[in-house]
Amino acid sequence: MENDTIITDTIDDSEDIHDSGKHDTADTKTALRTINLSVKFFDKLAIKNINIRVKKNNVAAIIGPSGCGKSTFLRSINLMHDLTPGAKVYGDIYVHNEHITDNNVVDLRKKVGMVFQKPNPFPTMSIYDNVAAGLKLNGIRNKSLFDETVEKNLTYTGLWDEVKDRLKSPAISLSGGQQQRLCIARTIAVKPEIILMDEPTSALDPVSTSKIEELIINFKKHYTIIIVTHNMQQAGRISDYTAFFYLGKLVEYSRTRRLFTNPREKLTEEYVTGKFG
């Protein structure tokens, strides 16, 4: 634990992920990199020097007891802390080899979508308008494009058959699980490259949860996904890599299989075997 400030982003026996300690601009396989990422709320450090690298078209899960900084980490990737009073972000974040301050926040967030813990459809909008919201609010006015986007993304998230007859009814009339899939459809409608998911199933029933897990596995073809979950089984089912956070620090980041069967750190082992947390 003493050397945690220099923990490399992944300590994996297998090949392709290693850390040179420097940012490699020619690297095309990496979707996201953070270097010494820390976040402070007023004077309190919430996460401390996090170094992580996520490969393209992979699912990375982040686990850890509540209050360990999982969500704080996730929300710093698309600069969502912008709105939080007293929040400050330190270090470097690279999204597809571009430093996040190279572009403006709005363009960054188009590339890095986010799905939240509680389904949050826009309450004044219909189902249709919710899916098309990202396009509409970004100034696109093309009815046929909207129609196409709505149908494609609702089909993709498995909602189309359930809602195709009532696209104009308010989004909040849907069930919780449907609302969350609607929010996912809304997120992918703006064609992000990376999707951040903040405990997307924690407010849902088991059936809805398994539908969303299925979606996430399918999503790998098109997107890179970083998912925060408090459910270790979920991480085991859907992710390629898993990061274990504890008290604001990254304890271990390994292939999911390895992290759950043969973790490098004792702390990880205690956590995944249920000794604490």
Binding site: T5, N36, S38, L45, N49, Y90, G91, D92, I100
Partner: peptide, 8 residues
């Protein structure tokens, strides 16, 4: 803990 520069 040494902290990097703030993302301005």
């Amino acid at each position: 803990i040494k902290i990097s520069e703030e993302i301005s």
